Amino acid sequence: MITHLRGKLIEKNKSNLIIDCNGVGYYIYISSYTYSFFLRKEIGEHIHIYTYLFMKENQNVLYGFFGKEERNIFSYLISVNGIGPSSAIVLLSTLTPNEIEESISKENIKVFNKVKGIGNKTAQRIILELKDKFTKKIITTENKEKNREPNLVKKDALSALSVLGFPIQKSEKVLDNILSKHPELSVENLIKESIKKL
């Protein structure tokens, strides 16, 4: 199983990347969520990406994720009857990993209805089969976030944006603006919202 890759970025598109690892080129399918994190990466730059190798009969397809959390959710989604890798990627391209977790734990079918190809029956199946996996985690995460100082959330988000290549001074202004309106945001969602404005 290929779990991650470090190599040179050869090509990037909204739905896929090509990475050269010691002379071997890997074609990797990605979500829009992951693409947003690699948006600022230049061709020829070295990157690190977590992967999931999907094997079915004679088909071997590599999927890539910016973080382990997104990869974990992908693996849970494809375990649901009727949800294949393509549907899982569409879900992760429309909703953030955090939104998927919260929607499952709170049984919010309407959120899944925003996703192309996901009707009520499919949304109900996702919730039914995955609810137990996420409920305890969501409660723990929410409690941690409530007890966490806003400046620490900002600090972690600023550090992540800096690693992604965004200017610190500009990033800090954007973060302050977002936090003034949405102080409850987690680090993950704060980063995503900031990237949209940078």
Rank of each mutant, 00 (worst) to 15 (best):
Y52L: 00
K106C: 15
Y52P: 01
L164I: 04
S36C: 04
K196N: 12
Y63G: 00
L128K: 07
T94I: 02
K154C: 07
K154D: 03
I104L: 07
Y63H: 01
G117Y: 10
I168M: 11
N108L: 07
I126F: 06
S31P: 00
E188M: 12
F74A: 02
E69M: 03
T3H: 09
I73N: 01
K144D: 05
K181H: 03
L91F: 10
L77A: 06
S171I: 05
L95P: 10
A88N: 15
Y26C: 02
E102Y: 15
P85E: 03
L175S: 08
L164K: 06
I47N: 01
A157Q: 07
Q59N: 12
K106R: 15
E11N: 13
I47V: 03
R125Y: 13
F38L: 04
K136Q: 08
G119T: 13
T141Y: 14
G119K: 15
R40L: 10
F65Y: 02
N60D: 00
S86C: 04
F112N: 09
E11H: 14
E193W: 11
E45C: 00
I178W: 07
S103C: 11
E193V: 05
A88H: 10
L92F: 03
L130N: 04
N113E: 15
E101V: 14
S15P: 01
E102W: 15
V80W: 04
I138Q: 10
N58D: 15
S186M: 05
G84W: 07
C21Q: 10
S180I: 06
K181Q: 13
I109P: 07
E11C: 09
A123C: 08
V24I: 13
E193C: 08
S180L: 13
I104G: 03
Y52T: 01
L164E: 04
L39E: 13
Q124E: 15
K173D: 12
L161R: 06
S36I: 01
E129I: 11
K114G: 08
V174C: 05
S79Y: 06
E129L: 00
L190G: 05
V163N: 11
S31L: 02
I100D: 07
G25Q: 13
T122K: 15
I73P: 01
G82L: 04
K181W: 02
N189F: 10
F112S: 12
N13Y: 11
K144Y: 09
N113Y: 13
E11A: 08
Q124H: 11
G25V: 04
N177W: 07
I28S: 03
K56C: 02
K116T: 09
H48L: 02
S36H: 05
N108D: 15
S86V: 15
T122E: 07
T135C: 03
A123Y: 10
R6P: 09
F66N: 05
T34Y: 04
I30D: 03
I19E: 02
K12S: 08
I178G: 09
L5V: 11
N16G: 04
D176C: 11
I168V: 12
N58G: 00
N113P: 01
D132P: 09
E107T: 11
A157R: 07
I43K: 08
K114Q: 11
F134T: 03
F112D: 07
Y26T: 00
L17E: 05
V174N: 02
L158K: 02
L161P: 07
T3R: 12
N143T: 05
